[in-house]
Amino acid sequence: IPGLTMFKMLEPFGTELFGISFPFEIKYSGLFITLFSCLRLAIFNLDEDQKYYFKGLNTPSNTVLIFGLFYAYTQNQSFEFLFNNAVLLIVLTVISSWLLISPVKMIAMKFKSMKLQDNYPKLALLIGSIIILLIFKTVGIPLVIIYYILISIIFQKQLK
């Protein structure tokens, strides 16, 4: 579904990018998100290490990122710079697709202990997300996912 959303976001741009005419409409590149989501799910189902963290961005978070951007734009024209530029949308597609299968460890909300020091990443994620949503409201939805990615990278060594 996020692939179809990106397809919809790229629809107005036709077949030309940077003055180069492609033999297909650019909107089809948005479907790479769907392809990489399937690949990510296959990897996750075969990997036994991902009990207390995820390798790569999980598909629900990626969906919230793409839908959140689209929803914020349709509600109040937030992120308009993104929706008016096919290159930025394609870059977002590439980054989103890569994050799905990346080796970067991402926080999972599974607790292996109740020790405070074992849960700093989760607490930072929870508190930061609440603050972002209180400040930015609807626009904060995709920002929370970006924050989630950044917090996961910051706490990379603590995720085991």
Rank of each mutant, 00 (worst) to 15 (best):
F44S: 07
T34S: 15
N58K: 00
L57A: 00
I90V: 15
L82W: 06
T15V: 10
P121A: 05
F44R: 10
A72V: 01
Q117T: 13
P121E: 01
L41Y: 07
S113H: 00
T59Y: 08
F67S: 15
L65P: 05
F54A: 04
S78W: 12
I43V: 14
Q77N: 14
T15N: 14
D47M: 03
D47P: 02
L17T: 04
Y53A: 03
G19F: 01
K105R: 15
I33L: 07
L35I: 04
C38E: 13
D118F: 02
K122N: 03
S102L: 06
L123E: 07
L82T: 07
S78M: 13
P12E: 02
W98A: 09
S78E: 15
F13V: 06
F67R: 10
L69H: 11
L57T: 00
Y53S: 05
V87M: 12
K8A: 14
V104C: 02
K115M: 13
L89E: 04
T93V: 14
F44N: 06
K122V: 01
A86F: 07
L10K: 03
R40L: 05
I66S: 07
T63I: 08
P12V: 10
Q75I: 15
M109I: 12
K115E: 15
L89C: 04
F44P: 02
F24A: 11
V87P: 03
P103Q: 02
M9P: 02
E80L: 14
K112M: 03
T59D: 07
W98S: 04
Y120F: 06
F83P: 02
F13H: 10
L99Q: 12
V94R: 12
F44M: 11
K122I: 12
L82V: 07
N76V: 10
M9F: 01
